[in-house]
Simulated assay, not measured.
Amino acid sequence: MLVIRPITEADYPALMRCAEESGHGFTSLPVNEEILRNRISHSVESFAKDVTEPGTEGYLMVAEDTETGEIAGTTAIEAAIGLDTPFYTYHISTVVHASRRLGVHNVVKVLTFGNNYTGNSELCTLFLRPEWRHGLNGRLLSKCRFLMLAEHKHRFSQTVLAEMRGVSDEEGHSPFWEWLREHFFSIDFTHADYLTGIGAKGFIADLMPKLPIYVNLLSPEAQAVIGQVHEKTRPALRLLENEGFCCRGYVDIFDAGPTVECDVRNIETVRHSLRCTVEIGTHSSSHDYLVSNTSFANFRAAVGKIAVDGERNVALITPEMAAALQVKNGDQVRLIAQ
Results as ranks from 00 to 15, higher is better:
residue 208 M to E: 08
residue 248 R to Q: 11
residue 206 D to F: 11
residue 226 I to V: 09
residue 251 V to L: 05
residue 150 A to Y: 06
residue 254 F to W: 12
residue 123 L to M: 13
residue 174 S to N: 09
residue 201 K to M: 12
residue 174 S to R: 09
residue 177 W to N: 07
residue 245 F to S: 00
residue 251 V to F: 05
residue 161 L to W: 00
residue 193 D to V: 05
residue 173 H to R: 15
residue 179 W to Q: 03
residue 162 A to G: 04
residue 206 D to N: 14
residue 200 A to T: 12
residue 254 F to E: 03
residue 152 H to C: 07
residue 204 I to N: 03
residue 241 E to H: 08
residue 253 I to N: 04
residue 159 T to I: 14
residue 259 T to S: 10
residue 253 I to S: 05
residue 128 L to G: 04
residue 238 R to V: 11
residue 255 D to F: 08
residue 140 L to V: 10
residue 189 F to P: 03
residue 152 H to L: 06
residue 176 F to L: 04
residue 248 R to F: 10
residue 211 L to D: 15
residue 205 A to G: 13
residue 237 L to S: 01
residue 123 L to T: 00
residue 151 E to F: 01
residue 172 G to Y: 08
residue 164 M to H: 01
residue 218 L to R: 08
residue 217 L to E: 12
residue 213 I to M: 11
residue 172 G to S: 11
residue 168 S to T: 14
residue 199 G to K: 04
residue 134 H to R: 14
residue 230 H to E: 03
residue 232 K to C: 06
residue 126 L to R: 00
residue 218 L to N: 05
residue 205 A to V: 06
residue 231 E to W: 07
residue 135 G to M: 12
residue 256 A to H: 01
residue 152 H to D: 10
residue 135 G to F: 03
residue 188 D to K: 12
residue 161 L to A: 01
residue 160 V to S: 00
residue 162 A to T: 00
residue 243 E to M: 12
residue 166 G to Y: 01
residue 146 F to E: 02
residue 128 L to K: 02
residue 149 L to K: 07
residue 259 T to E: 05
residue 202 G to Y: 08
residue 189 F to T: 04
residue 141 L to W: 00
residue 140 L to Y: 07
residue 189 F to E: 07
residue 181 R to V: 02
residue 241 E to K: 11
residue 154 H to K: 15
residue 243 E to C: 07
residue 149 L to R: 05
residue 162 A to N: 01
residue 234 R to T: 10
residue 190 T to F: 04
residue 149 L to D: 01
residue 155 R to N: 10
residue 169 D to T: 09
residue 229 V to Q: 02
residue 156 F to V: 02
residue 198 I to L: 04
residue 178 E to S: 15
residue 166 G to V: 01
residue 220 P to M: 09
residue 181 R to E: 15
residue 219 S to W: 08
residue 209 P to E: 12
residue 147 L to A: 06
residue 163 E to N: 01
residue 178 E to H: 11
residue 217 L to V: 10
residue 172 G to M: 11
residue 228 Q to A: 10
residue 180 L to I: 13
residue 140 L to H: 04
residue 133 R to Q: 14
residue 243 E to I: 04
residue 181 R to P: 03
residue 124 C to V: 12
